[in-house]
Design a protein around this nucleic acid. Structure first.
Length: 473
DNA sequence: TATCGATTAGG
DNA sequence: CTAATCGAT
């Protein structure tokens, strides 16, 4: 087999060795494997934080490959051209990759597959980014699901392919092709001063992901059902950013939690349901891609949301200075850590879209810019779910009350204390880090007075309810 | 994965 | 008087 032609392994959102069918198949062929990441238009178009996070992921993953006597080859440009050039340089005759499911990637990958085949190069795409292929889950009528609970019922008893093992070795080509340098890509450039703060709070790479997941199963899954909603508790799995870069695969998480479920673990089913929410988001994005940028329920086009991003109350929301403590704490957590507790995401989204009467797209874009765990499907579904324009809508107009939510989920104000410096004699490092992370132009300091509400809870609620009645009439 | 206000149970 | 429960939205 010494003359076997190499396989190009086109990495995108699958920066891992375990549970990676494309990699496993390539290695099992016995042929040399050339891992390659291509910085294309989709990469360049990422928000600042997710781009920075991806850059960190690429750095760690390349070291992982080097430990296996392999390499990560970096190229820029349209993938079709980059892959064909690499095939020519290396004699590779096949390209393997893990499928992506957002419309932009699907369009790109469909074109690349056809183009490669025209050029006489084999192209194979693999599952692995989801538990189920979106087209394999169907209602009795043969259509896609539109409501979460039946979707969960349909998949909870299904077999999920077990995660494949990490390859023992990755055969190297006789000669490595040239690679660009990651530092030249400057993937953190748009973060400016925020990158240093994020770096203190963000773990990167497959080893970190697997270690954290194991600890989660051992130490926190049992109490997950109760703890996951408390933003001050370390009660969640913390897998979202790892999933977004593919540093861990959903099948690994599914089988880990399923094993715990069979052992009678009290939190396992709740966790599996959360994994399936991610799956449901991708199911929706695949079958109704308009969910990513338009009201999923068209009747919401008539709702009088403001799309004016320059209003002072929108700036206050972005800055975490609405005067509503739980909202502000969440928005500051986002600046410092690049994530936000899931429950608080719902609350800040509700305040923006209801009390501030702002279109969910403005919040969606802010999250896209700032979340290191940014996932296009989950982000869009989440915003539309809160706004009311999405699938699985409640039969009433849902408005979260941030004060009621705080009493329920942060009764001791530990989360507020962690993120809001104003009024504290000696604020914790987390609250102070916010001032390091934000743009200098905001001119904010911990000595500022904490603001009065930009829109009070009763006024905002009344205004949103009135707009809802207006739309219905 | 909601809130509010009314009603009822319990002390 | 408070807490739990319920129905409308």
């Amino acid at each position: 087999m010494t003359s076997a032609s190499p396989i190009l392994l086109w990495l995108r959102r699958d920066l891992r060795l375990h549970d990676a069918p494309a990699l496993a198949d390539a290695c099992a062929s016995g042929r040399p494997v050339i891992p390659v990441f291509i910085r294309d238009a989709l990469t360049d178009g990422l928000g600042a934080a997710p781009k920075w996070r991806l850059g960190r992921g690429l750095e760690v993953f390349s070291h992982l490959l080097e430990a296996k006597d392999s390499r990560l080859i970096l190229r820029s440009g349209p993938p079709q051209e980059a892959l064909q050039a690499l095939a020519e340089e290396t004699g590779a005759t096949d390209v393997y990759w893990t499928r992506a499911y957002d419309p932009a990637s699907v369009e790109r990958d469909t074109g690349v597959k056809a183009g490669l085949k025209d050029a006489g190069i084999g192209a194979r795409s693999f599952a692995g980014a989801l538990l189920f292929e979106p087209w394999e889950v169907q209602t009795k009528d043969g259509g896609p699901y539109r409501v979460y609970s039946p979707f969960w019922k349909a998949v909870k008893g299904r077999e999920v392919a077990p995660p494949c093992a990490a390859p023992k070795r990755i055969a190297a080509p006789k000669a490595w092709p040239e690679s660009e340098r990651l530092t030249d890509w400057a993937m953190g450039a748009e973060m400016r001063r925020g990158a240093a703060v994020l770096a203190r709070h963000v773990e990167v790479g497959e080893a970190a992901a697997r270690g954290r997941f194991e600890r989660f199963l051992d130490e926190r899954l049992e109490s997950y059902k109760a703890d996951r909603d408390a933003p001050a508790a370390d009660g969640t799995s913390g897998m979202s950013a790892f999933l977004a870069t593919g540093e861990i695969g959903p099948r690994t998480l599914w089988h880990g939690a399923m094993r715990a479920w069979h052992e009678g673990n009290a939190g396992a089913e709740t966790y599996l349901k959360e994994l399936v929410w991610r799956e449901f988001a991708w199911h929706l994005a695949w079958h109704t891609p308009r969910i990513l940028d338009r009201n999923w329920r068209e009747e919401w086009d008539a709702f009088s949301w403001s799309e004016d991003e320059d209003r002072p109350e929108v700036l206050a929301w972005k800055q975490g200075r609405t005067g509503i403590p739980l909202v502000d704490a969440g928005m500051r957590e986002l600046q410092v850590t690049g994530t936000m507790h899931n429950r608080v995401r719902m609350i800040v989204a509700s305040y923006l879209t209801k009390h501030l009467m702002t279109h969910w797209r403005i919040g969606q874009r802010w999250f896209e810019e700032h979340l290191v765990d940014w996932d296009p499907a989950s982000n869009a579904m989440g915003w539309q779910w809160v706004a009311g324009s999405g699938p699985d809508a409640a039969p009433y107009f849902r408005i979260f009350n941030p004060e009621t939510q705080r009493e329920k989920f942060d009764p001791k104000e530990r989360y507020l204390h962690r993120w809001i410096a104003e009024g504290q004699g000696s604020p914790p490092e987390t609250a102070l880090a916010y001032y390091e992370a934000i743009p200098k132009g905001w001119n904010l300091s911990p000595g500022d007075a904490y603001p009065e509400p930009v829109v009070s809870l009763p006024d905002g609620r009344a205004r949103a309810l009135a707009a809802y009645e207006e739309r219905r009439s």
